[in-house]
Amino acid sequence: MLKIIAITLTGVMVLICMMTFYAFQTGIAVINVNDKVHSKRVFVPVPVGLMNLGLSMIPGEMLSQVNQELGPHRKVVQSLANELENMPDTDFVEVQGKDQHVLISKNGRNLIIDVQTPEETVYISVPIRATGNIVSKLASMSDRN
């Protein structure tokens, strides 16, 4: 009995390790919204690899809608991701206002959008390659359906 429990636990731990490794390998998208007015904070880390796995669960209707929106730009998005990935770290757009600041930049493997206003701060970090792959996969899946 103990042997079975030990084997099951080892299996679960190996699975968790593999999923963690996969998540880190493919990158983690982070959405962090801080509403200063209502003192609320939303922090969502999303392993993009898991999003990739979840794509197959999207219903057909939604896929055809995605195809309409995404289909024409599929190649552009894919080549954009490739271009971005091979680029040095850069601030692409920076807007500094009297009391607000917007920055779109590339940092390592991530594209970062950072918005700061007196009311709220929004921070979004997206792994470039994984996102490009997802867009491409989404478009190709909707082609098939």
Partner: peptide, 24 residues
């Protein structure tokens, strides 16, 4: 006047890639 600064740095190669989308 608006106490505003804008900085844009875009590689031309990236622009070439993005332009078909803008053209559309």
């Amino acid at each position: 006047n608006k106490e505003e600064k804008v900085r844009v740095n875009i590689p031309l190669s990236l622009m070439e890639t993005m332009l078909p989308m803008i053209e559309d």
